[in-house]
Amino acid sequence: MPSTPDTPSFHALIPCAGTGSRAGTAQAKQYQMLLGQAMVMHTLQALARVPQLSSGWVIVSPGDSFEWPTVNWPDHFRREACGGATRAASVFNGLGVMLQAGVPAHDWVLVHDAARCLITPEAVSQLIEACRDDAVGGLLAVPLPDTLKVQTSTTQSAPSPSGPRVDATVPREDKWLAQTPQMFRLGALHAALAHASATAFAGITDESSAIERLGQSPRLVPGSAHNLKVTYPADLAFAELVLKGRT
């Protein structure tokens, strides 16, 4: 069915130009091997099984040297070497390429972290169905389950030799941990990031924050704690354990 404002299509955009230094791996974390293939391939294969998605756009750095496999590569996904110095820049550049390629501005784009390899097609479909008629869009997120602490500021006192100290406890009510995908209209998200680019994307930590800066309120769609972003070495072991359980 052709895309129209009343029947928009859905597309995935996967920024994949980061280095992932906190993961402690010799190569970018999205290329770390998990169960015989790169982590990012698990991510792409999960997204490829989402029936509503008509295309996927993987945004890599211009100097990307990863040897991408041809086997198990989703036919309706493509790679674009337009990644930027930051995640926000990579997403902004990728959205621009999509628009230049003729993807309508009224279509929905779901931006998903390459390192969230435990995402399930069911969770993505849930997000799409929850937000497809929303005026703004939304994101997967989970309510904050733990007590949140603020550490003492080093500008107020000398650093403790034993490490950071608690300054205050923050109420966790009404607080959520943002995840991805984050789903917005292609043109609206591109415009929001274009506005943020004037300050080099300062303070833009995800797509929702760019939309929020324009005074809009994205919808929070309950996700799963399993949909973590692999960031530290222990996360790699956890992701492998979960993926093994799914085979």
Score class of each variant (00 low, 15 high):
Ala46Trp: 04
Gln52Arg: 15
Val58Ile: 15
Val71Met: 05
Pro69Gln: 08
Pro62Gly: 11
Gln52Cys: 13
Met39Cys: 12
Leu53Cys: 03
Thr70Asn: 12
Ile59Gln: 05
Thr70Phe: 01
Thr86Asp: 11
Arg49Val: 00
Ser55Leu: 10
Val71Ile: 08
Gln45Pro: 00
Val58Arg: 10
Ala85Ile: 01
Ser65Val: 06
Thr43Pro: 08
Trp73Phe: 14
Leu47Ile: 04
Gln52Val: 04
Asp75Ser: 15
Gly84His: 04
Trp68Phe: 04
Ser65Asn: 12
Thr86Ser: 15
Ser65Pro: 00
Ile59Arg: 05
Gly63Asn: 08
Ala46Ser: 15
His42Thr: 07
Met39Val: 03
Met39Asp: 01
Ser54Thr: 14
Arg78His: 12
Ala46Ile: 03
Ile59Ala: 03
Val40Thr: 12
Phe66Asn: 02
His42Met: 09
Thr86Asn: 05
Ala85Trp: 02
Ser54Leu: 12
Cys82Asn: 00
Met39His: 00
Asp75His: 13
Gly63Ala: 03
Ser54Ala: 14
Ala85Leu: 13
Phe77Pro: 08
Phe77Ser: 01
Gln45Thr: 13
Pro62Ala: 07
Asp64Ile: 03
Ser54Ile: 06
Phe77Val: 06
Arg49Ile: 00
Val60Ala: 06
Ser54His: 11
Ala46Asn: 08
Gln52Asp: 14
Asp75Glu: 15
Phe66His: 11
His42Glu: 03
Asp64His: 09
Ala85Val: 12
Glu67Asn: 14
Leu53Gly: 06
Thr70Pro: 00
His76Ala: 12
Thr43Met: 05
Phe77Gln: 07
Leu53His: 13
Val40Asp: 00
Ser61Ile: 00
Gly84Ala: 06
Gly56Val: 03
Met41Tyr: 03
Thr43Arg: 14
Ser65Ile: 08
Val60Ser: 05
Val71Thr: 13
Met41Arg: 07
Thr43Gln: 13
Arg49Cys: 10
His76Ser: 11
Pro51Gln: 09
Cys82Pro: 00
Pro62Glu: 09
Pro74Tyr: 04
Arg78Met: 06
Thr70Val: 11
Ser65Met: 11
Thr86Arg: 13
Leu47Lys: 10
Val40Pro: 03
Asn72Ser: 13
Asp75Lys: 14
Ala38Pro: 06
Ala38Lys: 08
Arg78Thr: 12
Met41Pro: 07
Cys82Arg: 11
Ala81Thr: 06
Trp73Thr: 05
Asp64Gly: 05
Leu53Pro: 08
Ala46Tyr: 07
Arg79Asn: 02
Thr86Gly: 11
Val58Asn: 04
Arg49His: 10
Val40Gly: 07
Glu67Gly: 12
Pro51Tyr: 04
Arg49Tyr: 01
Pro62Phe: 05
Thr86Leu: 10
His42Val: 07
Ala81Phe: 05
Ala81Lys: 13
Ser61Cys: 08
Gly83Cys: 09
Trp57Gln: 09
Gly56Tyr: 11
Trp73Pro: 02
Met39Trp: 01
Gln52Trp: 02
Asp64Trp: 08
Gly83Pro: 01
Pro74Gly: 03
Val50Asn: 10
Pro51Ala: 12
Val50Gly: 11
Arg49Lys: 15
Ala48Pro: 07
Met41Gln: 11
Pro69Thr: 05
Gly56Leu: 05
Gly63Leu: 08
Ala46Leu: 02
Pro74Ser: 06
